[in-house]
Amino acid sequence: MIAQFLTSTRCSRILRLLDLERKVILNGPLSSLRTLVDRRERAIADILSVQKELPAEFVATLKAKAERNSRLLLASLAGVKAASDQVEKIETSRRELRTYNAAGTAGSRPAGKVTRDQRA
């Protein structure tokens, strides 16, 4: 009975850590994510050292929450990449002027320096 209580307490601690990871992924700061992951990994190692077989309900919940966090991280990385691509496009448009010739072929020219006096 005591072993079952300890297992349920350890399991709930792991699930709480996964929920905290989710909050950090969504709200930041991401620098604190490493500490939470280390704590979660230690908690999982701790429970596995004591008990070889975990309750099926816990394993299913653990898997669902871990997959949720994984999807959030992948979406965050995709967002960072999209933002980086957008910044690169802005930088390129600042340096180059994209034009078309009479035949309709695209080309680019270095953008001239614009000062306040040259604006229309």
Rank of each mutant, 00 (worst) to 15 (best):
30 L>N: 15
33 L>I: 07
33 L>Q: 07
34 R>F: 14
37 V>Y: 14
37 V>D: 12
41 E>W: 07
41 E>M: 12
41 E>H: 09
43 A>M: 03
45 A>D: 09
46 D>A: 08
46 D>Q: 13
46 D>I: 07
47 I>Q: 05
48 L>E: 14
48 L>M: 12
48 L>K: 11
49 S>W: 12
50 V>E: 11
53 E>M: 07
54 L>V: 14
54 L>S: 09
55 P>M: 03
56 A>L: 12
56 A>P: 15
56 A>H: 15
57 E>I: 08
57 E>A: 09
57 E>V: 15
58 F>D: 07
58 F>S: 05
59 V>D: 13
61 T>V: 12
62 L>I: 10
62 L>T: 04
62 L>A: 05
63 K>G: 07
64 A>V: 06
65 K>W: 09
65 K>F: 13
67 E>H: 08
68 R>T: 12
68 R>S: 15
69 N>T: 08
69 N>S: 12
71 R>W: 13
72 L>N: 02
73 L>P: 04
74 L>R: 12
75 A>P: 05
76 S>P: 04
77 L>T: 03
78 A>R: 11
79 G>F: 08
80 V>P: 06
81 K>V: 04
82 A>N: 03
82 A>R: 01
83 A>S: 09
85 D>N: 04
86 Q>F: 01
87 V>P: 01
87 V>A: 05
88 E>S: 00
89 K>V: 00
89 K>N: 03
90 I>M: 01
91 E>S: 00
91 E>Q: 02
96 E>W: 06
